[in-house]
Design a protein around this nucleic acid. Structure first.
Length: 311
DNA sequence: GAGCCGTGGCG
DNA sequence: TCGCCAAGGCT
């Protein structure tokens, strides 16, 4: 990780004015400088559009799966206007098997909105970003902070876990709460833009590499000496249980995925018979197809059968 | 606010 | 093997 000015490894922390919060931030920033991964979106000159695309792709999808799709995407559509000029069907095909294909549809719609409202330039204002389709609290602040260097708290699942443990002494974060989570991060955020940027990125990186959900590597953690959870003896989580993720195998979601796969591969309308062949249960097929039509991921063709939108 | 939305890798 | 988890957001 050497894309930014790196302070001396053992830079002395200022004694005057140091609070527990600024001490924590300093540890994170220094750790990030030494241990942050060299990811595409951290390269110098990476565009704000590239950051936005990467954040869409990274929603609920691991880094390793995103990188090849991201690079192909940006080669094909280097600007929002380039994507806006292509049919949504092409975005869905390029999205391939990344999952949650509605994200591709929303990203295309956001590209249209950026082209129409912002002259093709990804906005830096959080409220303008929030107004874009598919952009929520996390993504809006991530783009403002990471693409434009603005000082905003960025809170994702990694950040929430690090705060829960290091600050709150809990093994797992409480269920997400927009106001509480942003306030908790704001409390820790360094005053300067550059430090705030590295702190936001560093908290996420620590949560992704060290303070992971299962079997955290506390022996490698820069916060181990000040971690409230470790100090308390790593107590088990007692709060409300997370909703159990439903089984994917045999679910309507799987059937939707299979139909989408057919639609992506086809360059003419997919017939009812072809739809029927992807899954044995007719009622489930019917629900899945109706859902895809309602979501705009599939459209009924005038010639019969179904296609991707604007195919 | 709860439920829903894909897919694959890992322990 | 299989449950858990992954840089969320929308309805």
């Amino acid at each position: 990780m050497s894309t930014r000015t790196i302070p001396p490894h053992n830079a002395e922390r200022p004694d005057a004015g140091e609070t527990p919060e600024t001490g924590l931030a300093t540890e994170i920033v220094n750790w990030f400088h030494e241990n942050g991964r060299a990811l595409p979106w951290r390269e110098p000159g990476f565009s704000a559009w590239g950051t936005l695309v990467s954040e869409f792709m990274l929603q609920q999808t691991p880094v390793a799966r995103v990188i090849p799709h991201l690079e192909a995407w940006l080669e094909r559509w280097p600007t929002p206007a380039d994507l806006a000029a292509s049919p949504p069907a092409e975005a869905l095909r390029a999205w391939s098997s990344l999952g949650y294909p509605r994200r591709a549809l929303w990203l295309h719609e956001a590209a249209v909105q950026i082209t129409e409202r912002h002259g093709g330039v990804v906005p830096s204002d959080v409220d303008a970003l929030l107004a874009l389709k598919g952009v929520g609290d996390y993504t809006a602040r991530a783009v403002a902070a990471f693409a434009y260097g603005l000082r905003h708290p960025v809170v994702d699942t990694n950040t929430r876990r690090v705060i829960a443990r290091a600050v709150q002494g809990q093994a797992e974060p409480a269920p997400p709460s927009r106001g509480r989570d942003l306030a908790a991060m704001e409390e820790l955020l360094p005053a300067g833009e550059s430090a705030a940027h590295d702190f936001n990125a560093g908290m996420m990186e620590l949560g992704a590499l060290v303070c992971v959900a299962r079997n955290p590597r506390c022996g490698q953690c820069p916060l181990s000496a000040r971690c409230a959870w470790l100090a308390a003896g790593s107590p088990a989580y007692l709060g409300p249980l997370k909703a159990v993720q439903k089984k994917y195998e045999g679910s309507d979601r799987q059937v939707r995925g299979l139909i989408m796969k057919e639609l992506r591969a086809a360059h003419k309308p997919v017939t009812d018979a072809e739809i029927d062949s992807v899954w044995p249960d007719a009622a489930q097929r019917s629900r899945a197809l109706a859902g895809l039509l309602a979501d705009g991921l599939a459209v009924a063709s005038a010639e019969g059968g179904y296609t991707l939108p604007h195919a």
